[in-house]
């Protein structure tokens, strides 16, 4: 385990914790951006350059901005007077802790069986592109249709209805 991994893991987990725990929603969105950046750096640390840069472009460049837009459009940055956590927060916390206990137990128990050292894979972007339009061309087309449908659907859902227009 390298020193770099511990720094990146700490950064990512701290960003995620802040995104979930902070009171001001805009601060949560900024902390979420830190967590996304930490994840992108973890991808780069795993020699997955393409996935790392895709993560930066899609998540930091698009999803985080979308979240900020949604917060500002809904006045969600106002902290409610009766707290930011739901009434059933204790049950949610217990479920999350139980899930982490099971996942962590499974990883610790099988740590010796996992492959732990592999030669650095040399994967170029050209190989990824050829795989995308070769073996994985059908999923690529389906994702293209999905993105188009999602974009049209999001616009139609969020479109402002004029008075008197059929609902």
């Amino acid at each position: 385990m390298s020193f770099v991994f511990y720094i990146l893991a700490t950064l990512t987990v701290a960003g995620a914790l802040a995104a979930v725990l902070l009171k001001n929603t805009v601060h949560c969105a900024l902390a979420l951006t830190v967590a996304f950046a930490g994840l992108a750096l973890l991808f780069l640390n795993l020699d997955a350059q393409f996935a790392g840069f895709a993560q930066i472009l899609v998540y930091i460049g698009a999803v985080a901005i979308l979240v900020v837009f949604a917060i500002l459009l809904t006045k969600g940055s106002d902290t409610p007077a009766d707290g930011v956590f739901s009434r059933t927060w204790l049950a949610g916390l217990a479920i999350a802790a139980a899930v982490f206990a099971v996942l962590g137990w499974a990883v610790i128990q099988t740590a010796n069986l996992l492959p732990n050292s592999a030669p650095t894979p040399t994967v170029s972007v050209q190989q990824i592109g050829q795989a995308l339009v070769g073996r994985y061309v059908l999923p690529l087309e389906i994702v293209a249709v999905l993105l188009t449908a999602a974009m049209i659907g999001a616009v139609i859902i969020a479109m402002h209805e004029k008075d008197g227009a059929p609902k």
């Binding site: 979930v20 809904t74 956590f85 059933t88 949610g92 916390l93 899930v99």
Partner: peptide, 19 residues
């Protein structure tokens, strides 16, 4: 696993839909 649990805790305990 830790990130997943943090996300799950956030999805189950926050009141704001965006969170």
């Amino acid at each position: 696993a830790l990130l997943f649990s943090i996300g799950l805790a956030g999805a189950l305990t926050r009141r704001n839909a965006i969170l």
